[in-house]
Design a protein around this nucleic acid. Structure first.
Ligand SMILES: NC(=O)c1ccc[n+]([C@@H]2O[C@H](COP(=O)([O-])OP(=O)(O)OC[C@H]3O[C@@H](n4cnc5c(N)ncnc54)[C@H](O)[C@@H]3O)[C@@H](O)[C@H]2O)c1
Ligand SMILES: NC(=O)c1ccc[n+]([C@@H]2O[C@H](COP(=O)([O-])OP(=O)(O)OC[C@H]3O[C@@H](n4cnc5c(N)ncnc54)[C@H](O)[C@@H]3O)[C@@H](O)[C@H]2O)c1
Lengths: 209, 209
DNA sequence: AGATTATTGTTAATAAAATAACAATAATAC
DNA sequence: GTATTATTGTTATTTTATTAACAATAATCT
């Protein structure tokens, strides 16, 4: 299959979650416009995404939910569980561990790291916190592939470097500081401050115009 | 000025933060490629964004940091402080309040809301938590303009509705459930689960190819 | 002083994403 | 059984965002 657009991948993840809900409620078929309504996007967008992954529904009956879930899963899940770690177990890091722990089957947070002696060797919702000094060792040992960064902003780039040199293949950076990674490592950055400022900007222009 | 692209707004917020740092370190001028390096984007992108806001630097001297900060602030900040509330003071909500409280001058979290009696009327890092039942009243009273949603997913749409009917003008939705808002309310949604799955997808395709 | 270099600002080109248009057709209505 | 309707799948168009190209010129070099 051709390379899927990033945005499509993101939407597929969301479709799947909605589809799982519908399926759990006993629904077996769904129309593009129903999916669209749930996601608050257009039906064309949905059909286009589904077209891109090569699945076809049935005319006037819609898509078979079970089949669609399976196809999406085949695309976005990997065969084996992908192991994830969280670096920096502060407020945000703890929220993350808490939220994800024991939830996903194909993505599993198996370790976290911190510099704070009060946190090292404790457990966070069942996930052990190690010293950053052992990062390389643990990541290799446990075969961790993804790192979520929730360290203070001024520790962002050193943390990214450590993750990369430990052999991590994907980073989700929640610090507001952009980091550099070699191009064989996938990087996703999200800056909450910027998001809030963006909302504020549009609110402002709305109010002041 | 023409309507600025959303992406430009987001980058301006990030430029400003970097510029403030540089300025604090005693730097007075900066080249487009220096800004680009900090943000890990291209210099053209930076120049283009700066062009769009109508600022001009000086040839071979770069941009005057102070001036640029002021111009960006004039664009993205509003004249008065914009008040923000957080709905759902769980792990994530608490992290947010904690992080933002007392930090920004033009954006201020002034209230949070929850349904849990153990949280109502307590303070979260100095910010009072009210009952959701008083949401409308408090939002109007305090003239709150932006709501950050960190409630459980199944409470997302009712929460959005309440915020809208209370007169909120911007929503930052951190639940994985898309919500509907009328078009005079600016909506920004961010789904952490999807982000992580996206990283996992690219890691997988990298590993399996 | 004249040549060279580094840098901006802007237009042009390309790429990515979203939306629109519409042909095909199964299901339903009459 | 024919017409109508609702829905998919796909191509075409438009919009948005990024990248490239390059002219203009201030600063520096020789
Ligand atoms: N909490 C939020 O809602 C929020 C909002 C916007 C941005 N952020 C960003 O997220 C990041 C974390 O925020 P937070 O509120 O959780 O901060 P926090 O201070 O609560 O947590 C930071 C954690 O990182 C640990 N740490 C420090 N240096 C480290 C290192 N070198 N290696 C590993 N761990 C280290 C600290 O011990 C602490 O446990 C920050 O970069 C912040 O800017 C957070
Ligand atoms: N924590 C994370 O890292 C993380 C990651 C991905 C997604 N999310 C999403 O963020 C949201 C919050 O996550 P969390 O981990 O903080 O959950 P949480 O359970 O810790 O917090 C939810 C809070 O909302 C309150 N609440 C419940 N119903 C409410 C209502 N109707 N009105 C107001 N408050 C109400 C609860 O009392 C609780 O304090 C969820 O939608 C979750 O899916 C969180």
């Amino acid at each position: 299959m051709k390379q899927l657009p990033h945005k499509t991948i993101a939407r597929l993840s969301q479709y799947r979650r909605s589809l799982l809900m519908c399926y759990a409620n006993g629904k077996n078929h769904i129309y593009s416009h129903e999916i669209a309504k749930i996601q608050h996007i257009t039906a064309v967008q949905v059909r286009r995404d589904i077209m891109l992954i090569g699945y076809t529904g049935t005319l006037r009956k819609g898509y078979n939910i079970k089949e669609l879930i399976d196809i999406i899963s085949k695309i976005i899940d990997s065969k084996d569980v992908i192991k994830v770690c969280v670096v920096g177990v502060g407020n945000l890091g703890r929220a993350m561990v808490n939220y994800f722990s024991g939830k996903r089957t194909k993505l599993s947070i198996v370790a976290c790291f911190d510099t704070d002696p009060n946190k090292i060797n404790k457990k966070v919702t069942g996930v052990k916190c190690y010293s950053v000094d052992d990062m390389k060792k643990i990541i290799k040992q446990k075969n961790i592939k993804i790192g979520i960064m929730t360290v203070p902003a001024d520790k962002a780039s050193e943390t990214a470097d450590k993750l990369v040199s430990a052999g991590i293949k994907g980073i989700l950076n929640y610090t507001p500081k952009p980091v550099y990674v070699p191009k064989d490592v996938f990087l996703e950055e999200y800056d909450m401050i910027t998001s809030l400022e963006k909302v504020a900007f549009f609110v402002k222009t709305h109010i002041e115009r």
